[in-house]
Design a protein around this nucleic acid. Structure first.
Length: 501
RNA sequence: GCGCCGUUAGCUCAAUUGGCAGAGCAGGGGCCUUUUAAGCCCAAGGUUACAGGUUCGAUUCCUGUACGGCGCACCA
């Protein structure tokens, strides 16, 4: 065991003392007749003069000793409840035992009768209590008061590093952090309900993949010892889900984890949660309509409204969203018409004139994308669908009717953030093969983002793939949006951090 | 990967130009039988992230390391 701090040593002594006094600090059995919320509700609902007895459990969050009485609050999954310990009711022995050996953070069980204090708070007058679990280490201390119904916290546990490394302590002392993850769970449920109601079936495809694909990203590599085989953690679900479209499922979706071996930022975590769906007999316009409907639905289900506040700005998520061609969006925000620069070199020169320093290896599509990222994305606060993308950065998307260099692809942006990415999927195996070959040509040998050729995927396509629209949405990003968080780490329970030792 | 900033008690934060490192809360000892950031009295709590350097003297200045934050780069 690690060396104890002074505070921990004191608690350790209390733990031993409890055992000596015959109170097990980690008992096996718990009795609970009411949650804190139910106990308060039962009292509120009771007739005048009717006695309400309750046995509640929870973690000690505050203690106020006043001579021969003690006020305390416990917290359980449902909320908080004030306890009132009175020497005359509890007995001097238990009173002293509590006072000497119970600390903030301990879990306890208390039995008694509900009443209302002079100041109006519904409270349990405790007749008996016991320890359920002794906390050996003190939780990060904070204090709070209620001002006009708002909780004001003093000395809140706020150091981001400590909060992420010890998320358990963060969750234990910062209830608003728990709220984020409750919202996140609701978001996932709402998405599933939305998809299920529209005839999509939820599937699970491999995370360990012999060939990665479906996105331009560096993979994590792992190894299967018995099979002597290197495997990649998936960077997308795309190619497996479309195999299922070949197999006869018309509508499939998957919610799961993607892994990308890239830099971390306020919007990027090495592992993140995606929703991808594929819809036969649909194209990207159909998917646009479904996207608007989906996001508005989720907001409505989780927040009760399709209008949200994000970083101090009101955002209306209800359909229909603004739609703009990528070329027009870049003219609009960057004052560059990519149509006038049909070659990599001409576009690079135009960007250098704007003060950029584009990488030598960039394709024309990558240059366009960096214009999008720099000038357009941060400006798109209200939901906006940007569509019709360059071919060379979209190797799985079908081209638009009269322009082989532009593909039917869109991304939706909200709050200055890319939320999802979708396209009319290529279903011509020969076209797809050619695109894979172009990727092999355009991306120099050793470029980690070069797409490996997935022969089995091409074989699947040759059996015949119905026309279909595909879609990917970052659930972490959607959660940031709906919980008004600027940092992806705030919506991931255990975000990746460097090891400390 | 690059740049800037940060790291002081369990938590939140101070510390003049380089001159004995402080406070609130938490914890400990007292007082207080309807309090709620309860209050009052007393005492305690520190290798100032780590390793070096400059200096009579370093939390403070310099170098390096670790971790974090922000920005950039990367990021179909």
């Amino acid at each position: 065991m690690a060396e104890l701090t002074d505070l921990e040593r004191v608690r350790f002594e209390k733990l031993n003392r409890l055992r000596e006094l015959g109170m097990e600090p980690f008992p096996r059995q718990t009795t609970r007749t009411h949650t804190t919320h139910e106990a308060i509700q039962a009292f509120e609902d009771a007739k005048e003069g009717q006695e309400v007895k309750a046995t509640v459990v929870g973690r000690l969050r505050s203690i106020r000793e006043m001579g021969k009485t003690i006020f305390a609050h416990i917290e359980d999954g449902a909320g908080r409840l004030q306890l009132y310990l009175r020497s005359d009711d509890l007995g001097e022995e238990l009173m002293g035992l509590f006072s000497d050996n119970f600390d903030l953070g301990d879990f306890l069980q208390a039995e008694g009768t509900m009443f209302r204090t002079r100041t109006g708070e519904v409270t349990l007058n405790v007749a008996d209590l016991c320890m359920l679990a002794k906390a050996l280490s003190p939780l990060p201390a904070s204090k709070e008061e209620i001002v006009d119904g708002e909780r004001v916290v003093y000395s809140a546990f706020a150091d981001p590093e400590a909060r992420y490394r010890q998320r358990y302590a963060d969750l234990a002392v910062n209830p608003e952090v728990r709220d984020i993850f409750v919202a996140r769970a609701k978001i996932v449920r709402a998405l599933q309900r939305f998809m299920d109601e529209r005839g999509f079936i939820e599937v699970e495809t491999p995370i360990l993949q012999p060939i990665y694909g479906g996105a331009a990203a560096q993979p994590f590599i792992t190894h299967h010892n018995q099979l002597h085989q290197d495997l990649y953690l998936r960077i997308s679900f795309e190619l497996y889900l479309k195999r299922l479209i070949v197999g006869g499922f018309e509508r499939v979706y998957e919610i799961g984890r993607d892994f990308r071996n890239e830099g971390v930022s306020t919007k990027h975590n090495p592992e993140f949660t995606m929703l991808e769906f594929y819809m036969a007999y649909a194209d990207y316009k159909d998917v646009m309509a479904l996207t608007e409907e989906m996001v508005a639905y989720v907001a409505q289900q989780v927040l009760g409204a399709a209008t949200i506040m994000y970083k101090g700005q009101e955002i209306d998520l209800s359909p229909h969203w603004k739609r703009i061609k990528l070329r027009d969006a870049i003219i609009d925000k960057a004052d560059v018409d990519i149509g006038q620069y049909p070659t990599v070199d001409s576009l690079r020169q135009a960007m250098v004139a704007l003060g950029h320093d584009p990488s030598e290896q960039s394709t024309r599509g990558k240059l366009i994308e960096s214009l999008l990222t720099h000038y357009v994305e941060p400006e798109l606060i209200q939901p906006t669908i940007v569509y019709d993308y360059p071919r060379d950065i979209s190797p799985l998307a079908k081209s638009v009717p009269d322009d082989p260099n532009t593909v039917e692809r869109f991304e939706a942006f909200v709050g200055g953030m890319e939320l999802c990415n979708a396209f009319t999927e290529i279903n011509d195996p020969l076209d797809q093969e050619q695109r894979f070959q172009e990727m092999g040509r355009d991306y120099v040998e050793g470029d980690q983002e070069r797409h490996p050729m997935d022969e089995d995927y091409l074989r699947a396509m040759r059996y015949g793939m119905p026309p279909n629209g595909g879609f990917g949405l970052g659930i972490d990003r959607l959660t940031m949006l709906l919980t008004d968080k600027a940092l992806i780490r705030e919506v991931i329970l255990f975000p990746h951090l460097r090891s400390k030792e």
